[in-house]
Nucleic acid binder design. Structure first.
Lengths: 221, 221
DNA sequence: TCACTAATGTACGAACCAGTACGTTAGCTA
DNA sequence: TAGCTAACGTACTGGTTCGTACATTAGTGA
């Protein structure tokens, strides 16, 4: 997520639009994730870049558009990760587990992304709705799930009545909750869901859960 | 969640500390849930009560403490609902499904609560940490889960290696995500997770998932 | 090399907003 | 019924914060 941040060497190009833009996005991502949309301060973002507040308005137009740009980039990162998915050579059961684990890993590695999505939900997904880029952007993961599901259902291995979107929701809910709700959950139940010592346990739990659900014996009705 | 709101009849008691306090809490719950902690406006809360901003500071001390009071009451509601849980007469499988469904129903019926918890997580659960009441307040659901789990494991029906807290996390994650992320999920994947027409489908999906996980055949290792 | 434009910095304004100083009244109690 | 206090209202303030007007400079193309 973080771009280059070299200590402005002498002789280096002083003016670099792309770098300035990227640096603003980096800092804005942190600040929005830290404090929420309304809690984030444009002045604070500016102070933590090598440029000034003026540039934020020059490049992005305003706080709202800046947040949208932050979201667009964050979703872009996960979409790229999903495009790396290569599970077609695996059998359906192994493929689903692999997919679930990759989702698990990505959520764990990008807590800022989780926070941004939580914040965007507080605001009714209005920025996603207003963004053409995010509207166009499909989900490679969904295509992968669709393929695995079809294979598993045709072979009779998978008995569950779900489609790809539902399965994606199931996997995401577990991964998302573990990161997004770790603070309240920890405070109320005294268990740190992201404790590294428990990481493998939850990772396995997710895979077991999804596979058990998909392959469970079902009464014909 | 909403308290009495009768249209101040003449002859009725004008001064009613309990009512004023409750009315402030009602409106504050809506306003915080609507806009987040920093997005919520104390003036807006005051304007939508029959009293003034001065009273908010008189009864609660400040915005921060008001939010804490809102959280305390919201958590109190779910704790009360959990205390109504009576599944000890059911077999473990039926009991787990019943518990999951009650969690599902409560989350669906209290979207404001979900939003408040999401907001509290954005702020690192600092208000919960600062609240004695919320610290003391255990979870009746957890006790119920513990009993069901023990019964199911002793009878050999449940094969999964989970404790009550993990199982609670699993159930909550599905119920919570469905409500909390419905906006971004809907915008990105075009599916409304809280569409009434799909309600039974997701309710069954949750129960199936949890039971499949708990009862799945496992290789001894 | 000169002029033009993209990129940047400074300083400020106007609105907003949490919190408070100060004054008032309802209703209980002695 | 007198007086006392909990409950309430008004009007304001001080600081914050988004956004912008205006000035300036780096780099580039003719």
């Amino acid at each position: 997520m973080t771009s280059v941040e070299e200590p402005a060497r002498p002789g280096e190009r002083i003016r670099d639009a792309a770098r300035t833009r990227a640096e603003i996005l980096d800092v804005a991502t942190q600040e929005f994730a830290r404090a929420g949309y309304d809690g984030a301060r444009v002045d604070e973002i500016a102070a933590r870049t090598r440029t000034t507040k003026r540039m934020i308005y020059y490049y992005f137009g305003g706080k709202e558009q800046l947040f949208t740009a932050v979201l667009e980039r964050a979703y872009g990162v996960i979409r790229e990760a999903e495009q790396q998915l290569d599970v077609d050579h695996l059998d359906p059961v192994a493929a689903v587990r692999r997919l679930a684990e990759l989702t698990f890993d990505h959520h764990e590695r990008h807590p800022d992304f989780i926070r941004l999505v939580g914040i965007e939900n507080i605001h009714g997904a209005q920025h996603i709705a207003a963004s053409e880029e995010l509207g166009r952007m499909g989900s490679p993961a969904l295509d992968v799930i669709r393929r695995i599901l079809t294979a598993g259902q045709e072979s009779g291995l998978f008995t569950a009545d779900v489609d790809a979107v539902d399965l994606h929701a199931m996997i995401s809910s577990f991964c998302f909750f573990r990161v997004s709700n770790r603070h309240t959950f920890g405070a109320l139940f005294g268990r740190d869901l992201v404790d590294p010592d428990r990481r493998e346990h939850y990772r396995a739990m997710l895979g077991d859960m999804v596979i058990a659900y998909l392959t469970a014996e079902r009464s014909a009705d």
